[in-house]
Each structure stands twice: as structure tokens, then as C-alpha cells.
Amino acid sequence: MTSPVTATSSPTRLPARSARPAALAAPAPPAAPAASLSSAVLLKSAADRVRSARPELADRLDLSSTQALRAVRDGFHGSRGVEADEVLAVVVIGRLDLPRWVKETCAFALSLAPAAREAWRRSFTRTVYLAGNPANLRGRFAFDHVACDDSAAWAAPAPGSATATLRRLLKAFEASHELTALPAVDVTVPGRPGGRRPVHRDLYVATAKVTVTDALVHVNHLLAEAVLDGLIGPGDRLTLRFVPRLTGLGAPLAMLRVDTDVHRPDELQAYAGLTTEV
């Protein structure tokens, strides 16, 4: 996939598990369905994301089926550029190291001001991925966040015109390799912990038939929206775990990234999932 524009469907925060019986349940298995990623769960996840980004439209949109959801998504795509408050972030990638990129993506999202966060959420955390060497661009463009090793750089969500020159100069990021399953790796989110203690979550990423480009899109949406929701904060530890598919994980999930199934175009699939605290 070479499109620099992400799909608008999906990560959605799953229903809070506040009803979890916690320690009372002791040796019994978790009462809550850990993460049975049934069609209904996936659909609800995707629909919740739309409701969360555009609550004022939620009552008017049909989010009752995969097909209806796709129509809604196409509708948002079709209206792109027309809406005055449409914004997009830009990430320029020089050399990709996925764990580092995850860390810096969180740092970037955490650095955004409240107004930018809100506008970005309303635009479904739309992000454009470009190939480029930040070291060669810093003299000409003021990025809002640059990875400490110059491997990537970010421009904060803004109307497209703000990054038009940059986007003309660079090309859409292409990475056609299938994502490689790496050993699990820990990433610590940069920054000094603020209002809450740091937590530890697992971040599951699907690899089978998922290109590196597609994985970036999925993980980026998930991380960005988890930061906007406060699920990821400074000092948190994320363990990246790569699996062919998120089927039957058994881990309780706090947020999912859902999009069209790689095998069945009329069904949904979870591409990434953030667990509850581990």
C-alpha cells in the first residue's frame, strides 16, 4: 500500500473494564471475555471510534454493519478538504526502527496542545507518511517533534496547506515488506510522569499479510488515540508483541485498531491491540 493517507476506520477504546471483579475473582479465569474478537466486538470497536471522534454525527450515521461502516468511512474520505476544521499530521521517516518509532510517536502525541489534540481526533488522527531524511530538512522546515536520532520527524496536526510544501518535496513512504515478527521488546514512553503513576501495557501487532507501511498506519492510529484518551502517558512502559493475528489473544484489551480483514474484504480484523495494565 502506498497511499500516504490513512484509513479513517478504527482504533476504538473498548468499554472500560471497571466492572472487572479484580482480585475477588482469584484463582478463577477472568470473568470478562478477555478478548474474544468476534465480529460484533470488532464492529463495536470501529463504530465507537467514529462516535468518539464525531459525537455530533453519531446519531445520524448508520454504524450497524461492516458495510455501513465502510460507507461512513468513504463518506468522510469523500468530504476531505471540504471541512474547514480538517487537519492532518505529517511524519517524515528516514530510517525505520519500529520500537523507536513507537516511542517517538507517543512522545509526539503527548507534546500536542489540547486544541491540536481535539482537532486531530475529529480528523480521525489522520496522518500522512512521507519518506525523507529529517537531517536534510530541518534547515527548511520547523518540525514539531524530531526523533533524537533524526530517524523521523513530525509536523503537528494542521490544515493541509501548512505542510503542502513539505509534502510536495517528499514522496509517500513506501515499505512493502511484510512486517517481521521481532522478539518482544519494551519501550518506555518519554517524559516525566505527571498526574498518574506510570503503567505497563502490552501492544500487540498483527504481522501476517501486513506490510510495514500498513502496520505503521495501524499502530500510529492506536498509539495516537490511546495518548489522546490518556491510556498512554509519560513514563509508561509498552511491551511490543508481534503475532500473526490477534485471534485468541486471551489478554484483556483496552483499545483495538480495526480495519478490513486481510483475507475477507467484507469482514473486520484487529490489527493492533493495547492491553489493560499488566
Partner: peptide, 11 residues
């Protein structure tokens, strides 16, 4: 990562 090679004169 399965991408191309670019001549980079963006500076």
C-alpha cells in the same frame, strides 16, 4: 523495509 532508494537533495 521494502522501500525504494531516493536521490536526496532536499537540503
Amino acid at each position: 523495509c521494502g522501500g525504494p532508494v531516493y536521490l536526496d537533495l532536499t537540503r
